[in-house]
Simulated scan of single mutants.
Amino acid sequence: MGKKTKETQQANILDSDDKKSGNAKVTKEDIKKMFERFKNPRFSTAYITKMAILTALSFILYAFAKFNLPFMFPSFLEIQISELPALLAGFSMGPISACVVIILKCLFKFPLTSTAYVGEATDILLGIAFVLPASLIYYFKKDRKHAFIGICAGSLCLTALSLLVNRFISIPYFVQLYFNGDFSLIVNLLKPLYKNVTIDTFYVYYLFVGVLPFNLFRCIIVGGLTFVLYKRLSKILHWDGSNMKKLSTVFGKHTVKNVEETYALAKKIADTLQGGEVILLSGDLGAGKTTFTKGLAKALGIEDEVTSPTFTILNVYEDGRLKLNHLDMYRVESADELAELGIEDCFDDDSVTVIEWNKFEHFDGEVIEINITPTGENERIFDVEKEENK
């Protein structure tokens, strides 16, 4: 999205009553541009490498790392978390990537099948039902709240579909495959766990006491692990093929003598950004904080004119490689004031946030501090330091 989005977000911040009541208008152009973001991933070497690793991990978890909990669920229901790598792919590379991991891990399992491919085919349906809604919701709004909503939506979709698949596909097919159509034999498998189960009540017990809590339990495990691992693996998952060692070259003191050199330093820093970073700019009025931010925006591919957010508090630019949040807290009394306006929701894994006159006490993820000291009419010293989880 371009300048209209920036102006809309500025208006929402200044008009907190409209923001809280949900009266902000969404135009057809906003919706059109939102869906333009949903596009096929670029098949770069980095993308293929990450997809190969995640698919391999998913296959290993699917084929070998599984176990039963016979005291809780029917003995032939196996706990496995092979959707985890697919969900990580979906959150970092988009919904299409998540679905590709699910499909490939099941296809690779075909030579090892013991169910004449029916088990693998149904697992493709169930896996996509989980990772597609989760990654799709997160794709359009990348923050913890929508990651949680997405995982919950995916869990409900998988669980609902699992009831239908087991009722009309899996159980009828497996009774014929393994028991020659004798339904009483599969009923007997459930009797150690459900003593009162009969042929007539089999589906009630199996679907609603077995399959339903079983799949919710699996989804809770996968969702919880995703929350724990995604942020920690974010740099690797968003790796674009560049040399990760180059990040260290931007830290330290840099002397610039004009705007062009300031832009060159900003580009060097922008090239290391993967998303989720917070850049804290400090320096006196007129030190060059906004000039640096203009260079950073240019290096990220943002074409909109970057202006100081002193009076708007926050400017958001979304048409570059990463979304850029430019926040000026000079006129803000405390971070609590921004929390009331919901500004913290802008901090996500798909954006870079530049803050002038910071009043926040804590950030999740990587923090880059840049202190700007004028040493002449045009000369400046940029002291660039890195802090984790400030």
Score class of each variant (00 low, 15 high):
F208L: 09
E305H: 12
L161T: 11
K142T: 10
I103N: 03
Q176S: 14
I13N: 00
L54Q: 06
F108D: 01
G127W: 08
E366I: 07
D123Q: 03
T255I: 15
G283K: 01
A89T: 07
D319C: 06
Q10V: 14
Y206G: 09
I103Y: 03
V204G: 14
F91M: 08
N68V: 14
I137K: 00
F174N: 12
N258V: 13
K145A: 08
S75H: 12
L193T: 09
G2I: 09
L54S: 03
Y138F: 15
E387I: 12
F382K: 06
K6W: 10
A65K: 07
A56W: 09
T255L: 15
L61A: 08
S248A: 14
G295C: 03
D304W: 00
N315C: 09
G283W: 00
E78T: 13
P111W: 07
L327T: 00
G241W: 04
E344Q: 13
V332Y: 01
L112M: 13
K359M: 05
F73H: 06
I186W: 10
L296W: 00
W357G: 10
S234E: 14
V367H: 03
F38S: 13
I171C: 03
D304R: 03
N196A: 15
D345I: 06
G342P: 09
T49C: 14
A116H: 02
A121V: 11
E260N: 11
G223H: 04
A46I: 00
P213D: 05
Y263K: 11
D319K: 00
D17H: 12
D364R: 00
K66I: 11
S114Y: 06
R42P: 02
V100I: 15
K235W: 07
N68P: 10
V187S: 02
G286R: 10
L247D: 14
N12V: 10
F91Y: 14
S170N: 13
V256T: 15
G150D: 01
T115Q: 05
V278P: 05
S184H: 11
F214R: 05
I171F: 03
E333F: 00
L285M: 15
V259E: 14
L233F: 13
L177S: 08
E377F: 05
V211K: 00
